[in-house]
Design a binder for these strands. Structure first.
Ligand SMILES: [Zn+2]
Ligand SMILES: [Zn+2]
Ligand SMILES: [Zn+2]
Ligand SMILES: [Zn+2]
Lengths: 143, 143
DNA sequence: TATACTTCGCTAAAATGTAACGATAAATGT
DNA sequence: ACATTTATCGTTACATTTTAGCGAAGTATA
């Protein structure tokens, strides 16, 4: 799906939920969609400055917070970076394959993985509310 | 196992590998063993300063780097915190259950979980070298 | 318009993490 | 014992990542 139509989908999703998909939010989301991999907040800030000349760290973090809250993007804990989600709306477990050579980030949804984790946790009496699964390695192109 | 004997086990493990288990390293490892949960680097620094008056951020991070390298501790990516490993030596996948209420961190080793992730990754042609699995939620005592 | 609410620009600072360099201290070879 | 090498430590300074606070500007609602 093209970036443009993905952005439109995001706009409709936000407005349907009563949230404003402002120019900043649209711009940042589009920037992230434009990448194969994840982008750090300050790299994002540098890019953003090209069009939004008065962008500051707080600008980026506030915008990222919004996008995170509405599930339009995810945060990679192992690299302090952010990546666009292409299928927001459907609540889904978040699992990533991260290539340490080319930076590619592949978001997967393995129900099996999710189930295995939740079952393991239950066997310890533990109730899972949010999981972080990030596998680092090499993508097929980089091996 | 008591903290003392766990520290001794660590000392022997390090020396057997030709590494020096110095006073600083022992102290930091013991501090981490003494916690149910994970500790941030600067909290650790505050505690460390009580006995090592000239400890600085670099002191802590260098020590943590050593302990990480030898597998005596793990780093939680989702909370920027460190937790002692009680069964170093046996190479094991690293998976955590983290209670968001009381801070308890339970390290588990589910081969099934590891296998499921690796198999999923392989189906995308992806070769995993290191995985991060951290499940947040509530422990049995906190539900 | 009046009102409430959200977003934004800006400043500052907190929290987290590293690089660099010389001084000690320990291991190694003679 | 002595010199040589290596690892660790103390210190300083800096880099990176993230958040708090405040008032101005924009937006919805009545
Ligand atoms: Zn997603
Ligand atoms: Zn790659
Ligand atoms: Zn472990
Ligand atoms: Zn708990």
């Amino acid at each position: 799906m093209s970036i443009g139509s993905q952005v439109e989908k995001a706009r409709q999703y936000c407005e349907q939920k009563g949230a404003r998909f402002t120019h900043l939010r649209e711009t940042v989301y589009a920037l992230l969609l434009d990448k194969e991999g994840a982008v750090g907040a300050y790299d994002l800030l540098d890019t953003l400055k090209e069009t939004e000349t008065n962008a500051k760290p707080a600008t980026v973090y506030r915008t990222l917070d919004f996008l995170l809250e509405f599930g339009l993007i995810h945060r990679l804990e192992s690299t302090n970076a952010f990546v666009a989600c292409h299928h927001f709306g459907c609540s889904h477990p978040v699992q990533f394959l991260i290539c340490d050579k080319c930076g590619l980030v592949k978001e997967i949804q393995s129900e099996g993985l999710q189930d295995t984790l939740v079952k393991q946790a239950e066997s310890y009496g533990f109730q899972v509310s949010k999981q972080t699964i990030e596998a680092h390695g090499l993508c097929s192109a980089c091996q």
